[in-house]
Computed example of a mutant assay.
Amino acid sequence: MPSLEFVTVDVFTRTRFKGNPLAIVTIPSDLDVPTPTLRAIAREFNLSETVFLHESSDATADVPSWTIRIFMTEAELPFAGHPTIGTACHVMSTLALGKTRAVLHCDAGSIEIEYANGVARASIPHNVHVHTESPFTGTEVETMQPRLKGAELLNIATVSPVKGMNFIYIQLPDFESLAIVECSGFKPAPILDSAWNVGFCGSVFYVLGERSTTPESAVKQSLRMRMIEGILEDSATGSAACGLAAFLAMKRGDRNVEFEMTQGVEMGRQSDIGVAVTLDRSAKAVAKIVLSGSAVTVMDGRVQYD
């Protein structure tokens, strides 16, 4: 019976059983595993995402590269943040020891990796789009989250960090409001702009924290967030973090801003996510997004399949 090696890692943390779990399954270079089998393996792990890491022939190159595919339990994703950071930490700490740079190829594009002191920094493919044709309303938020009825909603925006990944961002005034958000079972169903009406949609609730500015006009902003999709909550969502960071940077016109984001606190799985956003000269469009974080190995073994 064929089998594949796997590891699980906890991402956006240095502490086991915190952060967001990720399964990484290695596919040998001489093996072609059908997509339906990959989907079945992802469902078996039953984690928010599973990465299939294709073995590389250039792991000893100055800048090694790997191809990855990312699956949720029910769908394949073009890109996702915590699988990118988790896979980057895994390959750099085990397959490319001593290297500081690498490239991961996913459906959304090529991701340049820098790695130092246990932290992976990934230059994220992006095509940020703010949806405007049918704005999501406060009434729709209350339908999705009945316990927020009457709560102050400071801002609501629907944003795609890349095509196929969509998030409704709802700003709340304080941690008490954030704490009453729940997995209500109501999946977000925004009316997306016509050319972007495809892919996954989640809801993100956030509270802004401290903001500071350096003499060089670089901004640092902390925030805490939760990502809910129906009956599921994610303890760390890198793609949602990137979309939120890009939206907030464009909203305020911050040319250079570093976000320190905390997620998963209410689940007992605190995740620490870094996102650095650079806007172009107009300060209205994103030039670069860098996602950063750590990961720690938890399990390893083999998964058998027919």
Rank of each mutant, 00 (worst) to 15 (best):
Y169R: 09
S160G: 11
K163F: 08
E152Y: 00
G138V: 11
V130C: 08
E140P: 02
Q145I: 11
T139K: 15
T132S: 08
H129N: 04
P161W: 03
A151M: 06
A151G: 01
T137F: 06
A157D: 00
E133Y: 00
V130W: 02
K149H: 15
P146S: 09
N127H: 15
F136V: 04
H131E: 04
E142L: 01
V141A: 11
A157I: 03
V128K: 00
T139S: 14
S134L: 00
A151V: 05
M144V: 01
L148G: 03
N166E: 12
T143S: 08
S160R: 03
N127A: 14
S177I: 02
S177L: 08
V128H: 00
Y169M: 14
H129A: 08
V128F: 02
H129L: 03
E142I: 13
A157Q: 08
E140N: 01
A151N: 05
F167W: 12
A157R: 03
P173G: 09
H131W: 05
M165H: 02
N127M: 03
Y169P: 05
V141E: 01
P135G: 06
A151D: 08
L148T: 01
S134F: 10
E142H: 14
M144A: 12
H131P: 07
P146E: 12
T158F: 04
Q145Y: 13
P135N: 03
F175G: 00
T143V: 15
L154I: 12
D174M: 12
E152N: 13
M165K: 14
T143A: 14
M144C: 14
I170Q: 09
L178F: 11
M165G: 00
K163N: 12
V128N: 02
T137Y: 06
V162M: 05
V162D: 01
D174A: 05
K149N: 13
L153Q: 10
R147C: 07
V159W: 02
T139M: 08
I168W: 04
I170D: 07
L178N: 08
E140S: 09
L172P: 03
R147I: 07
A157G: 02
H129G: 03
L153P: 02
I168C: 13
R147T: 15
P173Y: 06
H131T: 11
V130S: 06
K149S: 15
E140H: 01
K163S: 13
F167A: 04
V130H: 08
E176C: 01
A151C: 15
E142R: 07
L154P: 02
E140Y: 01
I170N: 02
G164D: 10
L148D: 09
Q145V: 05
Q171M: 13
V141T: 11
N127P: 00
T143I: 12
G138P: 00
A157L: 03
V159I: 15
P161N: 12
